Computed example of a mutant assay.
Amino acid sequence: MPLQPLIESLVRLNDEHKSMLKLAQGKKDAVMNNDVDNLIQILNHESRLMKRIDQLENERQEHCYAYIREKGIKSLLNLNLTELSRLVFDPQEKQQLKDIQLELANTLHELKQLNDLNQQLISQALAFVDYSLDLLGASPGDEPTYAHPAGKTNSTNRAGLFDAKA
Protein backbone atom coordinates (compact mmCIF):
# COMPACT_ATOMS: atom_id res chain seq x y z
CA MET A 1 0.00 0.00 0.00
CA PRO A 2 1.53 3.33 -0.99
CA LEU A 3 -0.21 5.25 1.81
CA GLN A 4 0.87 2.84 4.56
CA PRO A 5 4.10 4.69 5.59
CA LEU A 6 2.08 7.88 6.11
CA ILE A 7 -0.55 6.06 8.17
CA GLU A 8 2.15 4.41 10.28
CA SER A 9 3.80 7.77 10.97
CA LEU A 10 0.41 9.19 11.99
CA VAL A 11 -0.12 6.28 14.38
CA ARG A 12 3.30 6.89 15.97
CA LEU A 13 2.53 10.62 16.17
CA ASN A 14 -0.76 9.86 17.93
CA ASP A 15 1.02 7.52 20.36
CA GLU A 16 3.51 10.25 21.27
CA HIS A 17 0.69 12.74 21.81
CA LYS A 18 -1.00 10.21 24.11
CA SER A 19 2.26 10.10 26.06
CA MET A 20 2.10 13.90 26.27
CA LEU A 21 -1.44 13.53 27.57
CA LYS A 22 -0.18 11.30 30.42
CA LEU A 23 2.53 13.84 31.21
CA ALA A 24 -0.04 16.65 31.24
CA GLN A 25 -2.11 14.67 33.75
CA GLY A 26 0.99 14.16 35.88
CA LYS A 27 1.74 17.87 35.60
CA LYS A 28 -1.77 18.68 36.82
CA ASP A 29 -1.31 16.38 39.82
CA ALA A 30 2.13 17.85 40.58
CA VAL A 31 0.78 21.41 40.50
CA MET A 32 -2.20 20.51 42.68
CA ASN A 33 0.05 18.73 45.21
CA ASN A 34 2.70 21.47 45.09
CA ASP A 35 5.32 18.85 44.10
CA VAL A 36 7.94 21.05 42.43
CA ASP A 37 10.55 18.30 42.04
CA ASN A 38 8.12 16.04 40.20
CA LEU A 39 6.97 18.99 38.07
CA ILE A 40 10.56 19.67 36.99
CA GLN A 41 11.03 16.02 36.03
CA ILE A 42 7.81 16.06 34.03
CA LEU A 43 8.84 19.25 32.23
CA ASN A 44 12.21 17.73 31.29
CA HIS A 45 10.52 14.59 29.99
CA GLU A 46 7.99 16.73 28.15
CA SER A 47 10.78 18.65 26.44
CA ARG A 48 12.37 15.43 25.16
CA LEU A 49 8.99 14.18 23.98
CA MET A 50 8.35 17.44 22.10
CA LYS A 51 11.59 16.94 20.18
CA ARG A 52 10.46 13.43 19.25
CA ILE A 53 7.05 14.74 18.14
CA ASP A 54 8.79 17.35 15.99
CA GLN A 55 10.84 14.60 14.32
CA LEU A 56 7.72 12.53 13.72
CA GLU A 57 5.92 15.54 12.27
CA ASN A 58 8.79 16.05 9.81
CA GLU A 59 8.62 12.35 8.93
CA ARG A 60 4.85 12.61 8.40
CA GLN A 61 5.38 15.55 6.08
CA GLU A 62 8.01 13.65 4.07
CA HIS A 63 5.64 10.69 3.68
CA CYS A 64 2.90 13.07 2.60
CA TYR A 65 5.15 14.63 -0.06
CA ALA A 66 6.22 11.17 -1.25
CA TYR A 67 2.58 10.16 -1.65
CA ILE A 68 1.76 13.36 -3.54
CA ARG A 69 4.72 12.82 -5.89
CA GLU A 70 3.60 9.23 -6.43
CA LYS A 71 0.22 10.56 -7.54
CA GLY A 72 1.99 12.71 -10.14
CA ILE A 73 1.69 16.08 -8.39
CA LYS A 74 4.98 17.91 -8.64
CA SER A 75 4.14 20.73 -6.21
CA LEU A 76 5.22 20.53 -2.60
CA LEU A 77 1.85 21.55 -1.25
CA ASN A 78 1.45 21.54 2.50
CA LEU A 79 -1.79 19.56 2.57
CA ASN A 80 -3.69 18.75 5.70
CA LEU A 81 -5.13 15.26 6.15
CA THR A 82 -8.59 16.20 4.88
CA GLU A 83 -7.14 17.61 1.66
CA LEU A 84 -4.85 14.61 1.29
CA SER A 85 -7.74 12.18 1.74
CA ARG A 86 -9.31 13.65 -1.41
CA LEU A 87 -6.34 12.27 -3.36
CA VAL A 88 -6.85 8.75 -1.96
CA PHE A 89 -9.13 6.58 -4.09
CA ASP A 90 -8.71 3.20 -2.41
CA PRO A 91 -11.67 2.90 0.03
CA GLN A 92 -9.69 0.92 2.61
CA GLU A 93 -6.78 3.41 2.64
CA LYS A 94 -9.20 6.34 2.75
CA GLN A 95 -10.97 4.84 5.77
CA GLN A 96 -7.66 4.16 7.55
CA LEU A 97 -6.59 7.75 6.96
CA LYS A 98 -9.91 9.11 8.25
CA ASP A 99 -9.79 6.86 11.32
CA ILE A 100 -6.30 7.93 12.36
CA GLN A 101 -7.15 11.56 11.57
CA LEU A 102 -10.15 11.39 13.92
CA GLU A 103 -8.16 9.64 16.65
CA LEU A 104 -5.32 12.15 16.40
CA ALA A 105 -7.76 15.08 16.44
CA ASN A 106 -9.44 13.71 19.59
CA THR A 107 -6.09 13.20 21.32
CA LEU A 108 -4.96 16.73 20.44
CA HIS A 109 -8.26 18.21 21.63
CA GLU A 110 -8.00 16.40 24.96
CA LEU A 111 -4.37 17.49 25.31
CA LYS A 112 -5.32 21.12 24.63
CA GLN A 113 -8.05 21.04 27.27
CA LEU A 114 -5.70 19.57 29.87
CA ASN A 115 -2.97 22.08 29.04
CA ASP A 116 -5.48 24.93 29.39
CA LEU A 117 -6.49 23.58 32.80
CA ASN A 118 -2.83 23.30 33.84
CA GLN A 119 -2.24 26.89 32.77
CA GLN A 120 -5.16 28.05 34.90
CA LEU A 121 -3.92 26.05 37.89
CA ILE A 122 -0.43 27.50 37.58
CA SER A 123 -1.85 31.03 37.28
CA GLN A 124 -3.92 30.50 40.41
CA ALA A 125 -0.93 29.08 42.29
CA LEU A 126 1.19 32.08 41.30
CA ALA A 127 -1.57 34.48 42.34
CA PHE A 128 -1.78 32.74 45.71
CA VAL A 129 2.00 32.96 46.19
CA ASP A 130 1.93 36.65 45.26
CA TYR A 131 -0.94 37.28 47.69
CA SER A 132 0.87 35.37 50.45
CA LEU A 133 4.05 37.39 49.90
CA ASP A 134 2.03 40.60 50.03
CA LEU A 135 0.56 39.52 53.37
CA LEU A 136 3.96 38.60 54.77
CA GLY A 137 5.52 41.82 53.55
CA ALA A 138 2.84 44.15 54.91
CA SER A 139 3.84 46.32 57.86
CA PRO A 140 1.73 46.27 61.02
CA GLY A 141 0.71 49.90 60.46
CA ASP A 142 -0.99 49.04 57.19
CA GLU A 143 -4.63 48.84 58.04
CA PRO A 144 -7.15 47.42 55.62
CA THR A 145 -9.58 50.21 56.53
CA TYR A 146 -10.08 53.58 54.98
CA ALA A 147 -7.95 56.47 56.16
CA HIS A 148 -8.20 60.03 54.96
CA PRO A 149 -5.37 60.74 52.49
CA ALA A 150 -4.46 64.02 54.25
CA GLY A 151 -3.87 62.13 57.48
CA LYS A 152 -1.37 59.69 55.97
CA THR A 153 2.33 60.09 56.42
CA ASN A 154 4.87 58.94 53.86
CA SER A 155 7.12 57.21 56.37
CA THR A 156 6.82 53.54 57.16
CA ASN A 157 7.31 52.18 60.63
CA ARG A 158 9.28 49.05 59.75
CA ALA A 159 9.90 46.64 56.91
CA GLY A 160 7.83 43.48 56.63
CA LEU A 161 9.13 39.98 57.24
CA PHE A 162 10.81 40.04 53.85
CA ASP A 163 12.65 42.91 52.23
CA ALA A 164 10.70 43.24 49.00
CA LYS A 165 13.47 45.30 47.33
CA ALA A 166 16.17 42.68 47.79
Score class of each variant (00 low, 15 high):
3 L>H: 04
4 Q>K: 13
5 P>K: 03
6 L>I: 02
6 L>D: 00
8 E>L: 07
12 R>G: 06
12 R>M: 02
13 L>K: 04
14 N>H: 03
15 D>V: 08
16 E>Q: 15
17 H>I: 02
18 K>P: 06
20 M>C: 02
24 A>M: 01
26 G>N: 02
27 K>P: 00
28 K>G: 07
28 K>W: 08
28 K>R: 11
31 V>C: 00
35 D>A: 07
36 V>Y: 06
38 N>C: 10
39 L>Y: 05
40 I>L: 14
42 I>W: 00
43 L>K: 08
45 H>M: 11
48 R>K: 15
51 K>I: 11
53 I>A: 03
54 D>C: 10
56 L>G: 06
57 E>C: 09
57 E>A: 15
58 N>K: 15
58 N>T: 14
60 R>L: 04
60 R>K: 12
61 Q>D: 06
62 E>S: 10
62 E>Y: 10
66 A>T: 09
66 A>M: 00
67 Y>M: 05
70 E>R: 12
71 K>A: 05
71 K>I: 07
72 G>Y: 08
74 K>M: 13
78 N>G: 01
78 N>I: 01
78 N>H: 03
79 L>M: 05
80 N>H: 03
80 N>W: 03
84 L>K: 02
86 R>M: 13
87 L>T: 07
87 L>I: 10
88 V>Q: 01
89 F>Y: 11
91 P>V: 06
91 P>H: 05
91 P>T: 09
94 K>C: 11
94 K>H: 13
96 Q>I: 01
97 L>D: 01
101 Q>E: 05
103 E>A: 06
104 L>F: 03
104 L>P: 04
104 L>Q: 04
105 A>I: 07
105 A>H: 04
106 N>D: 15
106 N>M: 13
108 L>S: 05
108 L>H: 06
110 E>H: 04
115 N>H: 05
116 D>N: 07
117 L>S: 04
118 N>S: 01
119 Q>H: 03
120 Q>E: 10
120 Q>A: 12
121 L>T: 04
121 L>D: 00
122 I>D: 01
123 S>D: 14
124 Q>P: 09
125 A>K: 00
126 L>I: 05
127 A>K: 08
128 F>E: 05
128 F>K: 13
128 F>T: 10
130 D>T: 13
131 Y>N: 13
131 Y>Q: 02
131 Y>T: 10
132 S>T: 07
132 S>L: 09
135 L>K: 13
135 L>N: 12
135 L>Q: 12
135 L>T: 14
135 L>E: 11
137 G>Y: 00
139 S>I: 04
145 T>H: 12
147 A>W: 10
148 H>Y: 08
148 H>N: 15
149 P>M: 07
150 A>T: 13
151 G>L: 08
152 K>C: 11
156 T>W: 12
157 N>H: 11
157 N>F: 12
158 R>V: 13
160 G>T: 02
164 A>S: 15
165 K>H: 07
165 K>M: 09
165 K>Y: 09
166 A>Y: 08
